[in-house]
Amino acid sequence: MSAADILSQDFELGFTYTRSTGPIVGRFLTGLRDRQIFGIRASDGRVIVPPMEYDPDTAEALSEFVQVAEQGAIVSWCWVAQPRAAHPLDEPFAWAMIRLDGADVPMIHCVAAPAEASLATGARVQAVWAPETRGFISDISHFELAGGGN
């Protein structure tokens, strides 16, 4: 059997998913489009962001939306020194759990910072909105460090 040519090529496999949001997540995304962040009040009084459809303890349907601030504090974080193509920021950044003021649970998002050393648990951050919002989590472009400390 003679040698084969060496054959290689790029190709892309795409899954063009669309998802129905349902009324609760849809309300959250609608809020983002309007540059507002909404949580939902659980049966024990906690405000959960992003809003959940059902109570984590009682499983009852939730419906009381609560607007929260676009500022908050870092609860925990992880520095991404070498962002990849799919990451939301081109420069090194942090994934962070951020508890927004008025919320009782943290939400994950990305934080732009000049260096890993400038971040700390408890650091105050502020949402930076995308130039154009469309009803998607990336309407919050990222968070950035805010003044005021903890």
Partner: peptide, 9 residues
């Protein structure tokens, strides 16, 4: 109100 999103992979 937002009712659907595109999330291709």
């Amino acid at each position: 109100t937002i009712t659907g999103i595109e999330c291709p992979v």
